[in-house]
Amino acid sequence: MPAKTYVRTIINGEHVDFLCEPRQSLLECLRDVIGLTGTKEGCNDGNCGACTVSMDGRIVTACLVLGVEAEGKEITTIEGIAKGSQLHPVQQAFLENAALQCGICTPGFIVSSVALLEKIPQPSEHQIRFWLANNLCRCTGYDKIVRAVQDAATKM
């Protein structure tokens, strides 16, 4: 069997090196190789956003990134959003606004929403809905998610 590749990254602020097959996606590497299962797989073709992570400051769907492409990159996953035991305002707002039901899409929504508020600190409802259109939620009807992002924006 051909050789695996050695990949050096910074994940959630820590140096993380791992071995992977070139065909393995970053999503597989995070979940199966590194053990960070907070990033979820919903479709494996970039259409649901459940595997959203930030790579070098830009959100991407980890299913459409190869693990080997992460060489030298800085990656933030849902596990890196809180500061120690202090939840990020977006996480807190999701809790207080009941913006999750089953919770499977929640990691992706939170990573996307944090990136949105870093780019647009006071987004309009339309800007929130546009930015989050690559994140599917089947439970909430989005209403409480949009409200949670609006709420978080007032607290950041």
């Binding site: 970039g46 959100i59 996307s112 690559n134």
Partner: peptide, 9 residues
């Protein structure tokens, strides 16, 4: 093209 995340790539 795609959504925000796709446009990152």
């Amino acid at each position: 093209i795609g959504g925000t995340q796709i446009q990152g790539r």
